[in-house]
Design a protein around this nucleic acid. Structure first.
Lengths: 206, 206
DNA sequence: TAGATTGTTAATCGATTAACAATC
DNA sequence: TAGATTGTTAATCGATTAACAATC
């Protein structure tokens, strides 16, 4: 069950397709790319290309089998295994810990870890916030392959090292900084300030 | 003092250039694009192109005048005027309210507004969290041109309408939903779940 | 057959990178 | 002059869109 490589925009459209396909009347057997495109405000060629990669071919005149599409798309998102942990139990860390949206892509955020936490606590939605010392053993007991760095820039390198030493090779960093990392680690930076600045620039141009 | 149109990646590099230029010894008069590129790990042609748009020409053999570069870059980021407000005083709203990174791009986040807030409160870093009813009058008293939507998807449309009616035309939405908006409003969606899913996909391919 | 729908190939667009001519 | 550095023009790359031939 090898997953094809897809682009980030295509990945982002998977939940839209699923939502639309599930919203159709249950007796809908087939659906055309044209109809899906119209329903979601996308281009029909784009839909056809996405579905071609993710679900295989459709049939001229009839389109695609709805249930097959749903199954293919779901199986693409299905978490092989492994969840995410957060380093940093401040406001951002807690907000991410309780954010529901990750489930849309089949990702579980298991727990947050904080320096200032002496014994296990619970977030507003009941997820664990644990002492940072317990991170390595947590990663041994649970399958974890994503690390989220939600600490101030001063502590980000420390967090990165800790995650790496706990066996995590993929990290998502909210701190505005440049981390030093071993070659086999992947770090994706989330630049919230840039996103807001870009929006501001767009409207200032008007 | 009209600002040239620049791409989002270029905008993102401005703070890097500024940080590097300010870090040079104070007696540094001139600096070449090649040196800046080496210092930041970028391509030299890219640096030259960015500086050409933002700061004007350099001189062959000598490069660019450091202080002129700093001034041009700073003036580009300088907030004409107007700040941002947040709708939603939950964990995400508070995290964004206290996030320092926006200052890097010259943007001030002034206050958050929440339904559940009965009278004025303060965030951990002393910024105001106010009753949502007071948003329109706040926007009359202060210059505000950016709205940040940090409420659950169910309330996002309401938040969008409120911001629009308060005169705000640019919004940054964290809720996973599609908002209906007047033609003259710009909405930029921040899809955190997609960012994490994209990272997961990259490492799953390995 | 005719027509709706498919998949593919070529064109477009924005950003980066490479090649190169211009200049102090 | 020679060489470092510039700015520009062309090539590349990834994603979207347009045009079109194939098929049930």
């Amino acid at each position: 069950m090898k997953k094809p490589e897809i682009s980030r925009p295509t990945l982002g459209r998977i939940p839209l397709y699923l939502k639309y396909l599930r919203s159709l009347p249950p007796n809908t057997e087939s659906i055309s790319a044209t109809a899906i495109a119209a329903g979601l405000g996308l281009g029909d060629v784009q839909v056809r290309k996405d579905l071609g990669i993710l679900c295989g071919s459709g049939k001229p005149k009839t389109g695609y089998v709805r249930l097959e599409l749903i199954e293919s798309l779901e199986s693409y998102l299905e978490c092989k295994n492994g969840g995410a942990v957060i380093v940093g139990g401040g406001q951002l860390g807690k907000a991410l810990l309780d954010y529901r949206g990750f489930e849309t892509f089949g990702i579980s955020v298991l727990a947050a870890f904080d320096k200032r936490t002496a014994k296990a606590e619970s977030s507003a939605k009941g997820k664990p916030i644990l002492p940072v010392e317990t991170l390595p053993s947590f990663c041994e007991n649970y399958e974890v392959n994503l690390g989220i760095i939600a600490v101030p820039a001063e502590s980000a390198q420390e967090a990165c090292n800790l995650l790496y030493d706990s066996g995590i090779r993929a990290m998502w960093c909210f701190a505005p900084c440049q981390l030093y990392k071993p070659a086999d680690a992947v770090i994706q930076y989330e630049n919230l300030a840039l996103s807001l600045a870009h929006l501001k620039m767009q409207v200032n141009q008007l």
